[in-house]
Each structure stands twice: as C-alpha cells, then as structure tokens.
Amino acid sequence: MGRLILKSVSRKFNNSFAVNDVNLEVNEGEFLCLLGPSGCGKTTVLRLAAGLDTPSNGEIFLDNKKITGANRECGFVFQEYALFPWRTVRGNIEFGPEVKGMQKEDVRQLSQHYIDLVGLTGFENHYPHELSGGMKQRVGIARAYANNPKLLLMDEPFGALDAQTRNIMQEELLRIWDKEHISALFVTHSVDEAVYLADRVVVMSARPGTVKEIFGINLPRPRVRTGPEANELRNSILKSLGAEIKKLMLQV
C-alpha cells in the first residue's frame, strides 16, 4: 500500500516545460525526499501526485490506480500550513473525517487521537492564529494523518520555521511516522533535512525539472546528524545539487 509511480511525467506552463520526463517511484512505506533548486518543479510534482493538477504528458499511479482528479488517498502537508483559519485545531483535523460523513463520536475520537499524537493536547480549541509556526504544522500533519492517507505529500513543511524548531519538528515527524508507517514524498531544499529524514534522496535538475540523481541513505534511525557517513552523503548530495544551482545562476 502507498506505492507511487510517476511514468515519464511532464507538465508545461505557457508552452514551456516546468517538469520534464520525471520517472520516480516511492516504494511502500518508504520516506523519499525530493531535493532541488527553487523553481525546478518540486511543488508541481507534489501537486500532480495529489491530483490537484494534471500532467501534460505521462501517467501517475498510486497502488496501480491511475490518478485522475483530486486524490483523497494523499495527505498533503503545505508549505505555509494552509490551515482553515475559521476552524480550531480540532476543527481543522476533523475536516477530512467530517467530509467523509463519519459519525460524530468517531470523528471526535479520531481527532483526539491525532491531537494527542502530534502533541497538541490542551490546544484543541485554539485557532490557527493563536499558534506558533511549529504548532501550526503539527496541526497540518495531524490533519493529513486523520484522513487516513496511503501516501503523505509534504511540501517544504518546515521551510518557514527557525532552525531549532525545524530540528525538533523533524524528530517529531519521524516519531509520528514511526507509529503509522505510510509512504512519504517530502520536498525540501535543505540537504541536512533530506539526509536526516529520507530512505532515499532524489536530486532534481534545474528547470525543466527532471530526476538527476538518486542517493540511498542506509543509516539506522534515530540518526546522528553529524556522523561521518552522514557527512559524506551530505557532501556528495551537495555537489550534485550545487551543480544545478550554478546552472540556475548562470541562466539569469
């Protein structure tokens, strides 16, 4: 369950390719990080996988089912949280189950489970504007999980957080992910984050984005951020990514 396959997927905007011929697989229960210079089409790939956008060419499959139209089997965690500001923490998390037409008591039980899981116990009735960035993204993660997805799609979820909170949230995400192992496609532009989180890291080329290189991270979790193997991996990934960033700078 939760096997995502992108088969030579392209997406054109205004007759120019934003992503071109992307072939990518997220295996069952795998944590895959997508790394690439800004504007290379990382968000576009995630939106295509979620069915929020349709590829110009190519096909996308989730568990061998072709994705056409918005896919509720994906849990999307957004860059700037995208929480419903008029709903409380609980209300945000209950959105998916509510839309599904679940019984009121079941919805309540489910939301409480995820509120506790992400460590927001006591904040159930807070509105998003009353929360810190880290707490907002906890809501974002719980909201995605509460919809019982087969695949988690996360678009730079910690990009707006300060370094310290970011590290904590990475640990928290792995702790939650460890409890309910779902395949995850995680977009980031931080090499450190990718090496800390991922089973495999996919480096994308500069626009038009395509898969440039794939790195396996076979380090046991919990990981030491500064171990020698981690450092070595970081170096090779940085080299690969750096070349793309250079290309981008020469273009403009």
């Binding site: 939106r47 979620a50 999307f76 700037e80 995208a82 959105f95 839309v99």
Partner: peptide, 11 residues
C-alpha cells in the same frame, strides 16, 4: 491553497 487542502481532504 485552502481549496486545494479541502480537495485533498475529500471535499
């Protein structure tokens, strides 16, 4: 983005 979020949540 809120409409996108609602779509992925099944609305």
């Amino acid at each position: 983005r809120l409409i996108d979020a609602a779509k992925t949540l099944g609305a």
